[in-house]
Design a binder for these strands. Structure first.
Length: 494
RNA sequence: UCCGGGAUAGCUCAGUGGUAGAGCGAUCGGCUGUUAACCGAUUGGUCGCAGGUUCAAAUCCUGCUCCCGGAGCCA
């Protein structure tokens, strides 16, 4: 995918954010305030930002487009030749220079912007030392190139837009839960539980790798390690948040999560952010309803608050049909399709396509199957429920049929599983039997079993990969481009 | 981890054994209330690294490193 780097010529509708003036600055305004009409025409303002483009007119003035991150559109600064430093500095401005501009807000004589700032003074705060090798000049860049300059890529239209979308979605997540009485639980990053069972874990240790302490039997002696036992980075906050759920009733986590899988795909990171609500006195249907309500709410907020950035994704980035704005609008309005795993298998068995992995009841859905369901059968997101117990985690609640569990996945076109959740097994005897059945030892699940021993209640929850939600919302192909500094197998620069 | 593709100018790429190319960028000039600006000129290379074959290697062979896509794992 190629993305055009230079500023778009069309001013998009601005976000709804109303910015208050920062207390520590005198008269300095963010560009979104000026372009959003929050500053009167004729008023003097100070603008601080980075030059994106400069065009000179031999009428003796220059047009300098400046970004400060506050919105998608640039501010056009008109720099008259009468400026004291016009010849010496303004005519030497290149993409990437940082500037402070004092000027007057005026109606633009040109097309492409309604308002602009006529400079009375333009101060260069920082030059670009060699414009020929500046990695972010005004031209098209490949995503791969941007990725190798993770520290400079936020200066591009694309990464700037992603950054604002990511922020807006994060805020919408917290607002959604807060409005419904959910408490944000800061579950631990470091875990000593080897029971999370959601993939390979990163070890956390202060032991000297070159000189490991040994037990008499020759094993590594973790009692001498920092925590007195083996420790890892969390792969899920779910088990911990269940404890708070069975006291606070409605809780959620929103934090970093780590998987040491050696994955090389556009959908995987070693460090990513996950959102995991947990709802007490609830069954699977409540969980599905919460998930659907959640997706509609956060994407609805995004449509309202970041129309400028979404317009850019729809016109320059997204290649799926329908493009992101229409896709999100449909999702916000639509009733979500829902089907059981059994029905999904039936659909797949009827499919005209021959799958690489043959379909039969009992197999887990492969990427190709999820794609068929979302892109061909439903043509949109779909909730699949009641999976075979053999392919799901030990904590999921067993259904009456004895062969399925109360699990649900929300599948989205182009992304695959965007949400995975379940009703949890609240019956201690059933949970213990399940743990043993999977060859695990109930004694390792002490505190988790306590939750079933003392005042257990039906409860349910789900997990949502935050970056995948951003991918879905923007149409950005590679997950490494929707997180500021991606960490993946073999990649932790910056 | 497996399968496939790739690494040549600041960027994106062409170049299948015989003197290293284009577009974009950058620089300079022309033109213009400009806005993917336009026109002209200039600049720009240890062809990923290490070996090998050959009179001759960006090109063929071997190994390595890294990147991209897909699969698995999963969110």
């Amino acid at each position: 995918m190629r993305v055009r780097f230079p500023c778009a010529s069309v001013v998009r509708p601005l976000g709804a954010a109303v910015l208050s003036r920062p207390a520590m600055k005198s008269g300095s305004r963010r560009i979104v305030e000026v372009l959003g009409g929050q500053v009167e025409v004729g008023a003097e303002v100070v603008i601080e930002g980075w030059v994106r483009t400069r065009r000179d007119s031999k009428a003796g003035l220059s047009f300098v487009h400046v970004h400060d991150g506050s919105c998608f559109a640039p501010l056009q600064v008109v720099a008259p030749g009468a400026l004291a430093n016009y010849e010496a500095e303004v005519l030497r401005l290149t993409s990437g220079c940082s500037v402070r501009v004092r000027g007057v807000v005026v109606e633009s004589q040109g097309k492409g912007q309604a308002l602009e700032v006529e400079a009375r003074a333009l101060e260069v705060l920082g030059w670009v030392e060699d414009p020929d090798t500046y990695p972010m000049p005004q031209k098209r860049h490949s995503m791969e190139h941007l990725r190798t300059y993770a520290h400079l890529r936020p200066r591009t239209n694309l990464i700037g837009a992603i950054t604002r979308v990511r922020h807006t979605l994060a805020q919408a997540v917290h607002r959604f839960f807060d409005a419904r009485g959910f408490y944000w639980i800061h579950t631990p990053i470091v875990t000593t539980s080897d029971a999370e069972g959601a993939g390979e874990m990163f070890r956390v240790s202060t032991l000297d790798l070159a000189n490991l302490p040994r037990t008499p039997e020759g094993a590594i002696d973790f009692t001498q390690d920092f925590f007195g036992r083996e420790a890892f980075l969390t792969v899920s906050g779910q088990l911990n948040v269940e404890a708070y759920c069975l006291a606070m009733s409605r809780v959620y986590t929103f934090g970093p999560t780590f998987r040491a899988e050696n994955s090389h795909t556009r959908r995987h990171l070693a460090e990513f952010w996950m959102i995991e609500p947990e709802l007490a006195f609830a069954a699977l249907d409540d969980d599905v309803a919460l998930a659907v309500d959640f997706l509609k709410s956060i994407f609805g907020a995004l449509l309202e608050e970041r129309a400028d950035d979404l317009g850019f994704f729809a016109s320059h980035v997204d290649t799926a049909e329908p493009r992101c704005i229409e896709r999100l609008e449909r999702l916000v309005r639509a009733d979500f399709e829902r089907m059981s795993y059994g029905d999904a298998i039936a659909h797949l068995e009827k499919a005209a396509t021959k799958f690489e992995f043959p379909v039969r009841w009992g197999v887990d859905l492969q990427s190709e199957h999820e794609r068929w369901l979302t892109e061909e059968v439903v043509r949109g997101p779909v909730v699949v429920t009641d999976y075979p117990r053999e392919i799901k985690a030990f904590y999921m609640r067993q259904n009456e049929d004895g062969r399925t569990v109360a699990a649900m996945d929300v599948l989205a076109p182009g992304i695959g599983e965007i949400i995975g959740g379940s009703q949890r097994e609240e019956r201690l005897d059933v949970l213990d039997a399940r743990i043993r059945e999977m060859g695990l030892d109930p004694s390792h699940y002490g505190w988790y079993r306590d939750l079933r021993r003392y005042g257990t209640v039906p409860h349910a929850g789900f997990g949502l990969g935050f970056e995948r939600a951003i991918q879905y919302a923007t149409g950005v192909d590679n997950i490494r481009d929707v997180i500021p500094f991606p960490r993946a197998a073999g990649q932790a620069e910056f």
